[in-house]
Design a protein around this nucleic acid. Structure first.
Length: 742
DNA sequence: AAAAAAC
């Protein structure tokens, strides 16, 4: 992760221990002074009573959209706006202090007694088991009776009633007219921008006095434009995977349209969208030659985008981009499926930026949003699109959990055109009233099939329901399966499907190996594989497992770090950064890293625990062999998992014979280049201590010294695995013997 | 079934 993100998140602490110690303080800070500050910020210019009543009077204008009612699939777990449940009552005090202003602020919700919210389910975040409740399980089913409950609620959710239109929003009053907005005035036309000629970077941004976004830019510039998919393969001829391009695009066959009795009100755009201000950024006239013969120009991408990408060596579109961009530019709803690492980010990013170019709504509400399943992926997409957005005069903002609210809220208040978001935080901000999706013209679901599974579906529908029905929707993933249909049928109109591969393991540069092993060998084999030269990702099933395997690897002299959702965001960023910059060559991750995350030159993916299903397999595998590079995928299969694994492999389109191996076998050495874990010198600087590394020396020689063992001692056979102090020795994963040499 | 997604 880029430095600039790390700066945005939890303060970069010295180490994990300090991190943990700080956490409580941090939390306290957030729940009190932090919250108060936020409340003050949000409350400042409001006039509570009048706001609500006037808002309600205007509400019908939006409620009348029957499509919204028809399309939405029932109450969402997030639909309890205003109700925080009994365990939040300790906040009463503050609500009182705040003089009866019922403007909701995160953590200071109005109480459940309020009539308009009393019928809503309790907040999912108040009960961790939300995903398992029967209500939530069927939340997206269209035939749910509860739907009526939700329908009646329509658009008059309490939070939103206070400012249905931009002019009612106090935040905006500071920018009554366009000329008062400082953001744009500094770069009305491209010709004024020095970076065109300078081409190197850093000073170019100094001419943009835009207030609080600015600092981020400088960091980014210094780090360059690390768009993952392309950087290592600047020219198309280097990309072998183009050969596998089948280019079979077809129209989606799903039955949708009038059968659900819903008509878009496309004829009256102003009903859903605010007037879009005319372009303030003119297309430069001097880019013709750059665009000449450029494949991106050929599919309708604006010269300035073409030029900006060319600057980073991106001159030829990938198949998925060639296939989907024209339709997306034409405003159609698109389902795009391209194999892992095939450039899907730009496939949706470019059309979105084209659409947003040089214009914004009067209130500067977001005109587009991209939803992604993990924070890391959100950052990656944001980083990839940010320089392009910049060139187009489009403001872009990362909205994700784990990072401070104020910047996000402030940014939204000032006005942002494009949001890159994880669902939870965006919903939170919408509930607060900080974000308003009422002007979203384009909604993108990245990793769409994952966003449509049970865990994410309610959040996704909640967010889509907040966007105008006539908006364009783009769904992208390497695997698009049946779950996606639910969203497609409800939210997409005459979608076009573009598939540049079969949805199976068709990346031709990827090798697959199934190693059938004894449970007692799993540790040492994992270490043997991970000790190879180059970056390796080890996937495990659980968070605890990730911690444990990382610790075990380090005990064996393999520098590894765990990445999973149970870590602080600061730790997550730090770990991923270390993996990217090479200081930690082995990443032990849960499926948090299975999708979308791009790190250059990951040569081997080890599935220490087999993937749960074929889609997970493909996405995990897709962390290697990206953008035409080579890579191997090794899955460790216990004897009792063999049958299931074979079935899974078949579904994934993987054709490989399982091989029985023991540590030190030639087959294994082939995969590792012959390296051995134990006693192998650690070539890279030691990382900061990881959580759960209690067994290590406190000194500098954490790796390679006391922790490592001579090879071939057969320590994995008996007893508790050689005395390393790994945590969770009693924890069992799955069948209970995965990493437990009992 | 786990993980992920707000504090």
């Amino acid at each position: 992760m880029s430095q600039h993100h790390q700066d945005q998140f939890v303060p970069a602490d010295g180490n994990e221990a300090a991190d943990r110690e700080k956490k409580p303080r941090h939390k306290k800070f957030q729940s009190q002074s932090y919250g108060e500050r936020m409340a003050a910020e949000l409350d400042a210019p409001t006039t509570p009573g009048t706001d609500r009543s006037s808002a309600r009077a205007e509400r019908p204008a939006q409620v009348e959209r029957p499509a919204q009612v028809e399309r939405r699939g029932g109450p969402s777990q997030y639909s309890d706006r205003g109700s925080r449940g009994p365990d939040r009552r300790d906040n009463d005090r503050r609500d009182d202090r705040r003089g009866g202003n019922d403007r909701p602020v995160r953590g200071y919700r109005a109480e459940p007694a309020r009539t308009e919210t009393s019928s809503y389910p309790k907040s999912s975040y108040d009960k961790p088991s939300y995903a398992k409740s029967p209500v939530d399980k069927g939340a997206y089913r269209n035939d749910r009776p509860e739907r009526t409950d939700r329908d009646s609620r329509g658009f008059d959710r309490p939070e939103r009633t206070s400012y249905p239109r931009s002019t009612d929003r106090p935040e905006r009053t500071s920018y009554p007219s366009s000329t008062d907005r400082p953001e744009r005035t500094s770069y009305p036309r491209s010709n004024d921008r020095p970076e065109r000629s300078s081409y190197q970077g850093n000073n170019e941004r100094t001419s943009y006095p835009r207030s609080s976004d600015r600092p981020e830019r400088t960091d980014r510039d210094s780090r360059g434009f690390d768009r993952p998919e392309r950087t290592s393969y600047p020219r198309s001829s280097d990309r072998p995977e183009r050969n596998s391009y089948q280019g079979n695009s077809s129209s989606y066959q799903g039955n949708r349209g009038n059968d659900r009795g819903y008509q878009r009100n496309d004829s009256d755009p102003d009903r859903n969208y605010e007037r879009v201000r005319p372009a303030q950024v003119e297309m430069p006239a001097d880019l013709g030659e750059v665009a000449e013969g450029n494949g991106f120009a050929a599919i309708g991408i604006a010269p300035r985008l073409v030029q900006r990408m060319a600057r980073d060596g991106i001159t030829a579109p990938f198949p998925i981009q060639e296939a989907t961009v024209p339709d997306a530019l034409a405003g159609k709803d698109v389902l795009g499926r391209g194999q892992t690492g095939s450039g899907k980010t730009l496939a949706f990013g470019l059309p979105v930026l084209m659409r947003l170019a040089g214009g914004h709504t009067e209130s500067r509400r977001p005109r587009a949003m991209v939803l992604v399943p993990t924070r890391e992926l959100a950052m990656q997409v944001h980083d990839a699109l940010e320089p392009l957005a910049h060139v187009m005069g489009v403001s872009i903002k990362l909205i994700a959990g784990g990072l401070p609210y104020p910047k996000q809220i402030e940014s939204l208040r000032r006005g942002v055109d494009l949001l890159i978001a994880t669902p939870g935080r965006l919903i939170d901000l919408c509930e607060q009233g900080a974000a308003d999706l009422g002007a979203v013209e384009v909604a993108v679901l990245d990793e769409a099939d994952h966003m449509c599974d049970m865990g994410f579906m309610p959040a996704v529908t909640t967010l889509l329901d907040m966007t105008p029905t006539s908006g364009q929707r783009l769904l992208f993933s390497a695997t698009l399966d049946n779950d996606v249909d639910k969203i497609v049928k409800t939210y997409l109109k005459d979608p076009v499907t573009h598939s540049t591969e079969s949805g199976q393991a068709s990346v031709s540069t990827m090798e697959h190996h199934l190693l059938v092993i004894e449970p007692a060998h799993k540790q040492s084999l994992t270490a043997e594989l991970a000790s190879r030269d180059g970056r390796t990702i080890v996937f495990v099933r659980t968070k605890l497992g990730a911690d444990r395997v990382a610790t075990q690897l380090r005990d064996r002299g393999v520098m590894a770090a765990a990445l999973h959702g149970g870590l602080t965001q600061g730790a997550r960023n730090r770990t991923l950064d270390q993996f990217k910059d090479g200081s930690v060559p082995v990443l032990v991750a849960t499926d948090v890293a299975a999708r979308g995350i791009h790190v250059d030159d990951v040569g081997l993916v080890v599935q220490a625990d087999p993937a749960a299903d074929h889609k997970d397999y493909l996405h995990r595998a897709g962390r290697t062999a990206r953008a035409g590079g080579k890579g191997a995928v090794v899955t460790l299969v216990l004897p009792h998992q063999r049958r299931g694994m074979m079935r899974l492999a078949e579904s994934a389109g993987v054709v490989t014979e399982p091989v029985r191996v023991r540590p030190g076998d030639e087959n294994v050495a082939e995969l590792t280049g012959g390296t051995q874990p134990s006693g192998y010198p650690v070539k890279l600087p030691a990382p900061k201590p990881q959580r759960g590394s209690g067994g290590f020396n406190k000194g500098g020689k954490r790796f390679g010294g006391g922790g490592s063992r001579p090879s071939g001692r057969g320590y994995e056979g008996r007893g508790n695995s050689g005395g390393s102090s790994y945590r969770g020795r009693t924890e069992r994963t799955g069948n209970g013997r995965t990493f437990e040499p009992r």
